[in-house]
């Protein structure tokens, strides 16, 4: 057996992006979307999540540790690439580049987002509708939120496409093309849900 773990780390990186992080992002966006029904509905939904038993364990196992591994190892992967879309301006090469860009945008945003909400909560602030509304009252913050929501949606959707290739699910070119349509549909749907939700806080 080999002592080198690169194969394992890469596969783990791919898996964590979908389970649990992809699943988490979908749930997170759905809770946010409750804000469309008003502050009451949002506070109730967020409150339900806050009251889950073993919350801290769940947060660490399902969110913080996977994000740290996926994010840090992902940065290492992203900065290994030497982009060449100017010479090879093919669709997939652009997706390759965007996957890395959106990943970097998302990890920077997540660091700020965790600081602003979770660390703030640990220091005594209450997580509710008003907290988010206060953040996005600043137009610069709102713009950064919208950019990051779209980036994260793209990163997840296109990541599902490469997940299917990485695990050998979509092998034929035809299946990969259909997977492109499906995942771009997911990108549009996630972007809509995410952006509409954040605009409900304005």
């Amino acid at each position: 057996m080999s002592t080198n773990r690169e194969f394992f780390y890469r596969k783990l990186h791919s898996l964590l992006g979908v389970i649990p992080l992809g699943a988490f992002l979908v749930v997170h966006f759905m809770i946010n979307y409750q804000a469309v029904n008003g502050p009451e509905a949002y506070n109730q939904a967020a409150g339900f999540m806050e009251k889950l038993p073993f919350l801290l364990v769940l947060e660490f196992v399902m969110i913080y540790i996977p994000i740290l591994f996926h994010g840090i190892y992902g940065l290492y992967i992203a900065f290994q690439a030497k982009h060449n879309t100017s010479t090879y301006s093919y669709f997939r090469n652009w997706m390759f580049r965007l996957q890395r860009w959106t990943g970097v945008i998302t990890i920077i945003f997540v660091a700020w987002h965790v600081w602003d909400t979770r660390i703030a909560k640990a220091l005594g602030a209450e997580v509710n509708y008003d907290m988010v509304a206060n953040i996005v009252a600043n137009p610069i913050a709102l713009t950064l939120y919208i950019i990051s929501i779209i980036a994260a949606s793209f990163h997840l959707a296109n990541g599902l496409w490469s997940f299917a290739v990485t695990w050998g699910i979509t092998v034929s070119p035809r299946s990969q093309v259909i997977a492109t349509y499906v995942t771009m549909g997911i990108f549009l749907a996630m972007s809509f849900v995410g952006v509409r939700a954040i605009l409900a806080f304005v």
Binding site: E6, R10, Y88, R97, S162
Partner: peptide, 19 residues
């Protein structure tokens, strides 16, 4: 699957098949 730079280093830019 072994060592650095194996199969998993592919990032699916798919330039190779075009080139």
């Amino acid at each position: 699957m072994d060592g650095d730079g194996g199969l998993t280093n592919c990032g699916n830019s798919q330039n190779c098949v075009q080139a």
